[in-house]
Structures are given as structure tokens and as C-alpha cells.
């Protein structure tokens, strides 16, 4: 129970941080915002790695393996697309 309360604390505080940070994002960058949040939500890979990690083979390991692939697609894809977009918002101003 104590565990859950501690997690809940982190959760609620993080929502507040998110709320204020997202409102400060300039509307012009809303597309990169979506792709970068997509990339960082793939931090779920952490859970997948724990499933693939054990030496023992089983269903859990297979599912973890699939999750690692999916999350990796997102991590690489998400950050690269974001970088591509942000790159376009550069150069300007001759």
C-alpha cells in the first residue's frame, strides 16, 4: 500500500509538471511534440528488457522480445523523425 501511495505521488506530480510544460510549447512545434512524446513513451522498453533478460526461456521472454522490437522501432523512428522536423525549423533567416 505504501508502495502504491508513493507511486501515486510521483504520478500526480508528473501530471502537473506535464501540464505546465506542454502549455509552454509553441503551437508551431505541436507536430514535433507529438513525435517526441511518442518516442519517449517507448521507454516502456524498460519493462520489455526485464522480460527478455532472464536466462530461462518462456512465453514471457517471447512477449518481451516482441515488445523490445516494437519499442525500438518507436524509439529510433520517433527521435529521428523529430530531429528531421526540427532541422527544418532551423536554417531560415537569410
Amino acid at each position: 500500500m505504501e508502495h502504491l501511495l508513493q507511486e501515486l505521488t510521483v504520478f500526480i506530480l508528473a501530471i502537473f509538471v506535464g501540464y505546465y510544460i506542454i502549455w509552454s510549447v509553441t503551437p508551431a512545434l505541436h507536430s514535433p511534440l507529438m513525435s517526441v512524446t511518442n518516442a519517449i513513451s517507448s521507454v516502456i522498453i524498460v519493462g520489455a528488457l526485464i522480460a527478455v533478460g532472464p536466462a530461462l526461456f518462456g512465453i514471457s521472454k517471447i512477449m518481451g522480445f516482441i515488445a523490445v522490437i516494437l519499442a525500438a522501432v518507436n524509439i529510433f523512428g520517433g527521435f529521428i523523425v523529430t530531429q528531421r522536423m526540427l532541422q527544418m525549423f532551423k536554417k531560415k533567416k537569410k
Binding site: N38, S41, I59, K61, M63, I66, A67, L70, A71, N74
Partner: peptide, 23 residues
């Protein structure tokens, strides 16, 4: 990309269910 995050979440939940001690 969103669909992949979703499926990954399902997979991790499933993995945790099948091997709870690892978590």
C-alpha cells in the same frame, strides 16, 4: 507509431503476467 507503443504495452503486461517473479 502510437499503435506500436500500445501493442508493446500489451506485450509487457502479458510478460509480467507470465513471469511475475522477474518483476
Amino acid at each position: 507509431f502510437h499503435s506500436l507503443v500500445g501493442l508493446a504495452a500489451v506485450m509487457v503486461a502479458g510478460a509480467a503476467f507470465h513471469n511475475p517473479s522477474a518483476y
